[in-house]
Computed example of a mutant assay.
Amino acid sequence: MQRRHLIAGGLAAAAMPTFALAQGLEKPKVTIAVGGKNLFYYLPLTIAEQLGYFKAEGLDVNIVDFAGGSRALQAVVGGSADVVSGAFEHTISMHQKGQPMRAFVLQGAAPQIVLGVNPKTLPNFKTVADLKGKKIGVTAPGSSTNVMANFVLAKAGLKPSDVSIVGVGAGNGAVAAMRAGQIDAIANLDPVITLLQRSGDLRIVTDTRKLAEAEQVFGGPMPAGCLYAPQSFLDKNPHTAQALVNAMVRANKWIQQAGGGDVIKVVPESYLLGDRAVYIDGFLASKQAMSADGSFPAKGGQTAFNALASIDPKMAGTKVDLNAIYTNDFVKQANAKYPKG
């Protein structure tokens, strides 16, 4: 499909009348909290926003960006946002805390998180065990990048307390921290990873942008970026939730048909981190890890639970109803309405 057709389709959606649609929505104005909006991890969110898919569903969406997913989650818990665009595994940890959250549309079929080391500070790195006593940069402490780092460390026999976790964000700050030698390793996402790799400031150790490697690391399908919200929000606002999912599913399908050149014409200039070629390379590296239609895999909940339980003794002894942490009901309706996006 040609670029002009891809973009024209989104602009046409933005021009559709929304008054009639909005009348059926319980909550037309929705605030979504996200941690690192510029990341490919959340690209469907940006595409849905930029191409007018939310507006086409009668929604007035305000997206608030934070340094990491854990802070975005705090915004919803605190009541300043309605929905989180964040990591799937947070729904499990929130159920454990007695604050049920439910994921209702998938953005990433794999975490897309890369763990790599700094060749300047660790020139003789051989195994993950060499990270003992070192500083590892993550988007924000407690975020999915932190969880992934802890998981890889655990497989190497290291505890979270064996390293120092440093929050470096998901943009230029993360790049600067690596180049300045302030951190010895990093768990982050594209375009940060591709930018560091291209400049020789990163040696990749584990790459979950690759579906096969992600499944090998986690032992099964590991759902990643998604929209999730308190169960009470979904119960009170089913039409609003459906409208959000319709927009996200359309964005997922647009991405599957898009090339790097299409994407850079839609996303804000600031996402490119000053290098369009690097951004396109990052998109191509991450594309296979993005959800094709917003559906959660049947075994994804168990995989995510196992990952969390392996690094959190409290989680290991907890019983969580894995059917209560996600639903494909909204996604099924969205795919029926927009079979081609």
Rank of each mutant, 00 (worst) to 15 (best):
F66P: 11
P221R: 00
G137I: 02
P297F: 00
G108Q: 14
Y42D: 15
Q112Y: 07
M94F: 05
I186R: 03
R209G: 06
M178P: 01
V117Q: 04
A316H: 03
A214M: 07
K134D: 09
F330H: 04
L21M: 13
V76R: 11
Q74P: 02
S270R: 15
A241L: 12
P141K: 15
L73E: 05
D130R: 09
F19M: 13
K120A: 14
Q2R: 10
K55A: 12
A22D: 00
N124H: 08
S232R: 15
N118G: 07
S85N: 15
S270T: 15
S70W: 02
R203E: 13
A285C: 03
I183R: 00
A48Q: 09
F88V: 13
F104L: 15
M16Y: 05
G133Q: 07
I255S: 01
L51M: 09
A170N: 09
A140V: 15
R203M: 11
I47R: 01
E269H: 14
M1D: 10
L43S: 02
R250V: 07
Q23I: 11
V114E: 06
K236C: 01
K134H: 07
T139C: 13
T194Q: 00
I165P: 10
H95Q: 14
V175G: 02
N62H: 08
G181D: 01
P100H: 13
V168P: 02
P123V: 06
A258C: 01
A289F: 03
A103Q: 08
Y338S: 13
T303P: 12
D184T: 10
S270I: 14
D184Q: 13
G167V: 08
K265P: 06
A33W: 05
L189N: 12
K340C: 08
L25F: 06
L308Y: 09
V266L: 01
G142F: 12
V266Y: 00
Y279Q: 07
A75T: 03
V77G: 07
P223M: 07
A324T: 09
P339G: 08
L272P: 09
F88C: 13
L51V: 06
D201T: 04
L21E: 15
G274C: 12
